[in-house]
Write a protein that binds this DNA or RNA. Structure first.
Length: 333
DNA sequence: AGGATTTGACCTCA
DNA sequence: TGAGGTCAAATCCT
């Protein structure tokens, strides 16, 4: 179902990174799990599964030239994809972070220190659904984490889930989200998230409409990043790579510093009533114990890239309270 | 208490 | 007519 080998290879990289995180997490919990062989076994299986998936994709990605590095492959990517990659600031931040992870601490975990019944009300105002001319862009994103595979990938917008539905012919339900600021700023942006039938670790995310919430002077303080798909005019499917271009030296250095503190950082604080700062998506503000690790990295990246306009919030992202950071540490599998 | 998610029913359109 | 999209009360979570 993949459009080309390149995204497949990139998916593999993201899976590898994900596997590394799981392995790291497992090591940190070894002490606690020493007398829980079943849990240990499950965790091992999970990790094995992730790496096996990655290997499978790598094999599929470039059977002809296994020596080609992913970022080299990307150079051969079609221009539209390349443009899209260039456009995604946060994606790049994520790339930097994850590149740094792999470069600085390939598998080194030793210093991880912290590492009712429906109403009959009128619905005539219902916006027309299934409008053909509505702008739709579909991308694919890897699931953020095995333990939180119900969560959609972070995309740096805040979303509110308003529905979920079983889709005919699909194994997994489709979740419907709208911009958190829809009412306040009349933002029409929506998205649909659905797990791929044949790949449990990939989400297909369809964005509908453009965010207008950031255009308001009273809109959230953190200016949103460019929406993922603005350059893609025609409905199409691409896979967002988790590793793309080499980081600039400065950003790499900065993020590298962060990584030394937060390599395995967890969510910086649940949903927080005010989670409207624009930096945490539905994925990042998932309720309770299912705090997500992966989005927290995006949060940090976002904080950095927007640090000029948002002062204190950024620091909160970068230096979250310790208890918040590690609450998620005991999540199972 | 306030805001987000869940979920069954309702509505629209192909 | 039925699949897909949305609504909104109930429920959950912090």
């Amino acid at each position: 179902m993949f459009q080309s080998n390149i995204p497949t290879a990139m998916d593999a990289l993201s899976l590898i990174l994900h596997g590394c995180r799981l392995a790291k997490d497992l090591e940190e919990r070894l002490g606690d799990l020493a007398n829980q062989p079943d849990t240990l076994s499950r965790s091992c299986d999970d990790i094995i599964h992730v790496f096996a998936s990655a290997k499978e994709r790598l094999t599929n990605a470039h059977p002809q030239d296994p020596s080609l590095l992913p970022h080299q492959q990307q150079q051969q990517t079609d221009p539209s994809l390349q443009e899209w990659l260039n456009y995604g600031v946060i994606t790049q931040a994520m790339d930097v972070i994850q590149s740094s992870i792999s470069m600085q601490q390939p598998m080194d975990v030793s210093d991880s220190g912290r590492a009712g019944s429906s109403s009959s009300s009128q619905r005539s105002h219902r916006s027309s659904s299934r409008k053909q001319d509505e702008e739709k862009r579909t991308i694919r994103l890897p699931a953020p984490q095995m333990g939180n595979t119900e969560l959609p990938p972070e995309d740096n917008y805040t979303w509110r889930k308003y529905g979920q539905k079983e889709i005919l012919g699909s194994k997994y339900p489709r979740a419907y989200y709208r911009c958190t600021h829809q009412k306040m700023y009349d933002c029409p942006a929506k998205k649909q998230v659905q797990r791929l039938d044949n790949d449990f670790y990939m989400f297909e995310v369809t964005y509908i409409g453009q965010h207008t919430c950031h255009m308001s002077s009273t809109a959230p303080s953190i200016a949103p990043p460019p929406p993922p798909p603005p350059l893609i005019q025609d409905p199409m499917v691409i896979t967002q790579p988790m590793v793309s271009q080499p980081p600039t030296s400065s950003s790499a250095a900065t993020l590298g510093t962060w990584l030394s503190m937060e390599v395995s950082g967890s969510s910086s604080g649940g949903r927080g009533g005010g989670g409207e700062a624009g930096a945490s998506s539905a994925a990042g503000i998932r309720y309770g114990r299912d705090a997500v690790e992966f989005p927290a990295v995006a949060d940090m990246a976002d904080a950095m890239f927007n640090s000029g306009s948002s002062s204190s919030n950024s620091m909160d992202f970068i230096f979250p309270h310790r208890e918040d950071k590690w609450d998620a540490g005991d999540k199972d599998n």
